[in-house]
């Protein structure tokens, strides 16, 4: 399907203080692709996401979702197709109960209350928190909040999912659960994160951003293993590719076994 395609052409954006946050970024995402966007703090990842969602509008260049350009006029249509999960779920869950929050989007697209309910329940079921539907967001744990924020986006039935640091602040088990959840989605996915091991597990392709420009774009296995590139961009190898902390041997964890002394 063509409308799952996302294309970014020569994007430029500078903040009012003239700081050039995005400086000529171009890439395109195929339907169903899962792309990791990594880079040091201040590299321009978050600005890029805000541009994609049309919260900020670019000074130069264009973004195409399917065949539609992101402009002020097309925003309602664009936002129906692309869902973004914020880094801080507290910014995203602004209603008094989980149900109301997940229903907020569909209601704004003027669906019937019956359809809204069906969508909300499906979304909650998908992330496995139907039992929390009447809870207030401030009574949820970090992992539950994240799940609710994802459900709030899923209920819009987007084709493309954009996630800002989905594993930030989660305990290891919740992180693992969230990763399993993301893996089950067939959507086109764009994930920014400093959690390189998660990117390694979830994304087949990775884009490295540095100083508002793309420093590298290619298969995750190659990019994340490129020690020189990672170092130059303020990153480091994922733990999965670092030397074994026990015996120091440099190999894939699943491929080597420690010799018992």
């Amino acid at each position: 399907m063509s409308h799952h395609k996302l294309e970014v052409r020569e994007l430029h954006f500078a903040y009012p203080d003239r700081h050039k946050a995005v400086n000529g970024i171009s890439f395109s995402a195929r339907h169903g692709e899962s792309i990791g966007i990594i880079g040091a703090n201040g590299a321009g990842k978050s600005t890029l996401l805000l541009l994609l969602m049309g919260i900020l509008l670019p000074q130069k260049g264009m973004i195409l979702v399917g065949d539609v350009e992101v402009t002020k006029k097309t925003l309602p249509m664009i936002r129906e197709r692309m869902g973004m999960v914020f880094q801080n779920p507290d910014d995203q869950l602004f209603m008094t109960t989980v149900y109301e929050d997940v229903a907020f989007g569909p209601r704004n697209y003027k669906l019937s209350e019956k359809e809204v309910e069906a969508r909300v329940m499906t979304a909650l079921d998908h992330v496995g928190i139907t039992h929390l539907k009447d809870r207030a967001p401030f009574r949820l744990s970090g992992g539950e909040k994240r799940a609710a924020a994802i459900a709030a986006v899923l209920s819009m039935q987007p084709d493309i999912l954009i996630m800002d640091e989905p594993s930030a602040g989660l305990d290891p088990k919740s992180r693992r659960r969230m990763m399993g959840l993301l893996q089950s989605f067939e959507h086109t996915k764009l994930i920014t994160s400093h959690d390189l091991d998660m990117i390694y597990d979830l994304c087949e392709r990775t884009i490295v951003v540095k100083g508002g420009e793309i420093a590298a774009d290619g298969p995750t296995v190659e990019i994340l293993a490129d020690e020189a590139l990672m170092d130059a961009c303020g990153l480091e190898l994922p733990f999965a590719l670092q030397n074994c902390p026990v015996c120091g041997s440099k190999a894939m964890p699943q491929q080597h076994q420690h010799s018992k002394k």
Binding site: L50, M53, I55, L75, P76, R79, E80, G83, M84, F86, N88, D91, Q92, F94, E100, A103, F104, G105, R107, N108, Y109, K110, E113, V116, A152, V153, M156
Partner: peptide, 20 residues
């Protein structure tokens, strides 16, 4: 501002729609 952004992303246009 980010709350407002989150609301806009889910179609908020100044009208608050609620259930029955």
């Amino acid at each position: 501002q980010s709350v407002y952004g989150a609301m806009c992303l889910r179609g908020f246009d100044g009208e608050y729609r609620t259930g029955d």
